[in-house]
Amino acid sequence: MANQVEPKLEKALYDKLQQECFVTIATVDFETGGPNVSAISWVFAKDEETIHFAVDNRSRIVHNIMQNNKVVITMIANESIYSIGGKAIVKKEKLDHVPLKLALIELSISEVRDVMFYGSKISIAPEYDKTYDIAAATRLDRQVMEAMKKA
């Protein structure tokens, strides 16, 4: 997809977003008007034009989206880096069937760009480990992903 702008997710990106995935999200800060970037992993492609993600409902991300709905998600996939932009809404202030107070955010995609610099590729995708109780993390991750799929 190098040097192309697409109006929706291609199949490979959609497939990658069917499970928990490391991404960054950029919003417009409600206090400063500048960029605000956070890393999240509870993200799910509802379809090729819609992404759901869950964050603590007290998160700065939620406050920022309520003031300015323009959002960009950046993800690494297929040996490249993609910028997925669009408009977001707080679909639910509290995600059902999850023990934490998580907001469900819905991103309506307006463009998907391959933003990897020319003549290169990602050779090793980033990995992360959960640093708290693995069984609890696995259970919570499953609950959040199922709740997002049902929303």
Score class of each variant (00 low, 15 high):
residue 25 I to V: 15
residue 128 Y to H: 10
residue 74 T to P: 01
residue 17 L to Q: 00
residue 74 T to H: 04
residue 119 G to K: 08
residue 39 A to W: 11
residue 53 F to S: 02
residue 28 V to E: 01
residue 75 M to R: 04
residue 29 D to M: 00
residue 136 A to S: 13
residue 37 V to D: 05
residue 78 N to R: 11
residue 117 F to K: 10
residue 17 L to I: 02
residue 80 S to M: 05
residue 41 S to P: 04
residue 133 D to T: 04
residue 43 V to C: 01
residue 54 A to G: 07
residue 135 A to W: 02
residue 132 Y to E: 08
residue 75 M to K: 02
residue 132 Y to F: 14
residue 71 V to H: 02
residue 79 E to L: 10
residue 28 V to W: 00
residue 43 V to F: 09
residue 65 I to Y: 02
residue 112 V to Q: 01
residue 97 H to R: 13
residue 111 E to Y: 15
residue 55 V to D: 00
residue 124 I to P: 08
residue 95 L to E: 02
residue 107 L to V: 07
residue 100 L to H: 06
residue 124 I to M: 13
residue 116 M to Q: 11
residue 117 F to Q: 10
residue 44 F to R: 11
residue 25 I to G: 07
residue 85 G to R: 11
residue 21 C to I: 03
residue 25 I to T: 12
residue 63 H to L: 09
residue 50 T to R: 10
residue 19 Q to A: 15
residue 68 N to P: 07
residue 104 L to Q: 09
residue 44 F to M: 14
residue 44 F to T: 06
residue 91 K to L: 14
residue 122 I to P: 08
residue 25 I to W: 10
residue 46 K to D: 10
residue 76 I to F: 11
residue 44 F to W: 15
residue 42 W to E: 11
residue 73 I to N: 01
residue 29 D to R: 01
residue 51 I to H: 09
residue 70 K to F: 08
residue 57 N to L: 08
residue 60 R to N: 09
residue 92 K to S: 09
residue 24 T to S: 15
residue 71 V to T: 09
residue 53 F to P: 04
residue 27 T to A: 00
residue 67 Q to K: 12
residue 55 V to S: 06
residue 128 Y to S: 10
residue 104 L to W: 06
residue 132 Y to I: 07
residue 83 S to H: 09
residue 112 V to T: 06
residue 81 I to T: 14
residue 25 I to Q: 06
residue 112 V to Y: 03
residue 32 T to D: 03
residue 130 K to C: 10
residue 92 K to L: 12
residue 54 A to Y: 07
residue 110 S to A: 12
residue 101 K to Q: 14
residue 129 D to Y: 13
residue 103 A to N: 02
residue 100 L to I: 02
residue 82 Y to A: 03
residue 66 M to N: 12
residue 62 V to E: 09
